[in-house]
């Protein structure tokens, strides 16, 4: 199979997965117990008022009809209204999505270069004290839940030392540097997990590449240590590393939800968790679908990176 063919096929699968996620989300949200119309109006209302609101919310229509209406709306950027506040979901969604992306990008920029560098160092000094320290450190960070890292950082750096604000609230007209400072603690929290994951894979990949015969050949040929690592080893490890970077970013979705709650950061994750408790369908749909889409796309990129880097995978048995 050719490379574009492979990518086309995987993209089709990704689109299908996305459709499944959308249907699952919509169906799932439908099944959440309780009547949204009743939730909005509260206890002391007439049946007539509830019935009227149900019609206004189009709850009287069949599920599939509403699903297609909603999907058509979403395709045009209309995400419906929040059932609780009555405000359109779109603008709030856009603002929070921007905040979440900012945090994720910040964390990725902080963690990825450092993780790959440390992974390289650990592989080069394999089994020495340096490697052992780095490995222990990365195993620890991979084991720590985000709320542990987050609360320790908060209590030491924000409460005791006062270097950073306790609440990572941001508002639209905040300056860039102010924002960087405000979001530093949540970004570090997220970086820990993602970075440790990438570090471990980088170390494992480089270690196994360094065991190959062509590395020994290069060594015997008298290639310098630096060129050995960068020109011979790293090049051949780029595929697996790119693959794991994409997977780690996909994994960040779990981390970002918890991190946003820890720091009360106004992003999509915190909004979604909040809306589940409040039964706010359109918000859950918009957040869930965007997280789902990110996850699927990153997984797709991970696959493509693996195939591009390793031509043998273009011919699956």
């Amino acid at each position: 199979m050719t490379l574009p063919g492979m990518i086309a096929r995987r993209s089709m699968e990704a689109v299908a997965t996305l459709a499944i996620i959308a249907a699952l989300l919509f169906g799932g949200v439908e099944l959440i117990p309780g009547d949204p119309a009743r939730t909005i109006l509260g206890q002391n209302v007439t049946e007539e008022a509830v019935a009227n609101l149900r019609i206004a919310l189009r709850l009287d229509q069949p599920v599939y009809q509403r699903f297609f209406d909603w999907a058509a709306g979403a395709a045009h950027g209309d995400l419906g209204k929040s059932l609780l506040s009555g405000r359109p979901v779109g603008p709030d969604f856009a603002w929070r999505a921007k905040n979440t992306l900012f945090l994720a990008g910040y964390a990725a920029l902080l963690s990825l270069p450092l993780a790959i560098a440390l992974g390289l160092i650990a592989a080069l000094y394999r089994d020495r004290l340096m490697d052992r320290t780095i490995s222990l450190f990365s195993l620890a960070t991979i084991s720590f839940p985000e709320f542990f890292v987050g609360y320790v950082l908060l209590s030491v750096l924000a409460m005791d030392l006062g270097w950073f604000p306790v609440l990572s609230t941001v508002d639209p007209d905040m300056g860039f540097w102010e924002r960087l400072h405000r979001c530093f603690l949540p970004a570090v929290t997220l970086s820990c997990l993602v970075g440790a994951y990438v570090l471990r894979i980088t170390r494992a990949t480089i270690t196994s590449v360094l065991e190959r015969p062509y590395i020994e050949m290069a060594e015997l040929k008298g290639v310098s240590r630096l060129s050995l690592v960068f020109r011979h080893a790293l090049i051949n490890a780029i595929g697996p590393i790119a693959n794991v970077v994409a997977l780690a970013l996909a994994y960040m979705i779990v981390g970002i939800v918890v991190t946003e709650v820890v720091f009360t950061y106004p992003g999509l994750g915190q909004w979604m968790v909040d809306s589940v408790a409040k039964h706010d369908m359109n918000v859950i749909l918009a957040c869930g679908l965007s997280f789902g889409a990110t996850y699927v796309v990153l997984n797709l990129l991970a696959d493509v990176a693996a195939v591009v880097a390793n031509p043998r995978m273009r011919h699956p048995r």
């Binding site: 699952l24 779990v254 997280f291």
Partner: peptide, 9 residues
């Protein structure tokens, strides 16, 4: 499928 989204749902 994204695990956390599935679980929350």
């Amino acid at each position: 499928l994204p695990p956390l989204i599935l679980a929350i749902l």
